[in-house]
Design a protein around this nucleic acid. Sequence first.
DNA 1: AACTTGCTTGACGTATACGTCAAGTAAAAA
DNA 2: TTTTTACTTGACGTATACGTCAAGCAAGTT
Lengths: 150, 150
Amino acid sequence: MTKDFFSITELSDELGVSARALRFYEDKGLVTPQRAGTTRVYTRRDRARLILILRGKRLGFTLREVKEWLDLYDTDPDQIEQMSRLHNILHRKIVALELQRDDLEETLREMRAMDAQVMEHLRGKGANGSRPDAACAAPRTNGTRTKGVN
Amino acid sequence: MTKDFFSITELSDELGVSARALRFYEDKGLVTPQRAGTTRVYTRRDRARLILILRGKRLGFTLREVKEWLDLYDTDPDQIEQMSRLHNILHRKIVALELQRDDLEETLREMRAMDAQVMEHLRGKGANGSRPDAACAAPRTNGTRTKGVN
DNA sequence: AACTTGCTTGACGTATACGTCAAGTAAAAA
DNA sequence: TTTTTACTTGACGTATACGTCAAGCAAGTT
């Protein structure tokens, strides 16, 4: 039995963001939960949108940009005129995302190469060479991180 | 004959950012060009760092984060103690980047699937089906875009 | 000498994305 | 009924990443 509706705290807990953030997203028109009286009631569809929003944020997009392509999902499939434009937009977004992916993989290559150099130095001069997670404190002071690698 | 030195405007023109941005990066300690009197003189190394900075930004990292891993490049290779920590840090960054890449490719898959659906609708109902770049105005009002797909 | 060009350093303004109170309401628990 | 719990809407504060003047200097041009 999967739930149909969610409170703001249920979702903020599950998604790892503050309730304030969810209200902010609503303010900006990225989600529009219904109300039971004054209290927000999120559907599974709202939840799905929020997951997309957070992924967009992790990829470095602004909320405005995320909203733009969330709106694409809601385009009426019977408006042929709009669908042609939608295809253009999608095509351009895809190209841009592919460029970003290439950026990312180039960076990954460089990091790995650098790591290899480091390992070589360690092997040459002595001391421990493997177990990258050992003896690593990992402070985690900031509880509300979205992005960032330390 | 490749140039050895660059003025701030040469670099800002080449890299597509404002001179103000380059001064800002210096303020934040991401680059430290030398001076001829008061005037900034950028070396090829400074230029290389700036390229890394801009790539980091495109990937959605903050300047602080970019600075952190730029500083890694400057770690003294003879400090074995530091090198072991460096290996840890690199390892974690690599893992995080791989996660981000997975996010990105998931998004790409969804966009392509959506585009396929759109194409199907277009084929079913009539009108033109290919040539995604045709009849597309592409305003380009904002000259200083870094990120964003329209 | 006067002027333009290119650069400099502040100082202030702005958009984004929330965090952090403050004050109030509505429903459930004691 | 009183209290607690969960939620609500402002209002204000904050960090990031610059843009935008303003005012000034230094060197080359007319």
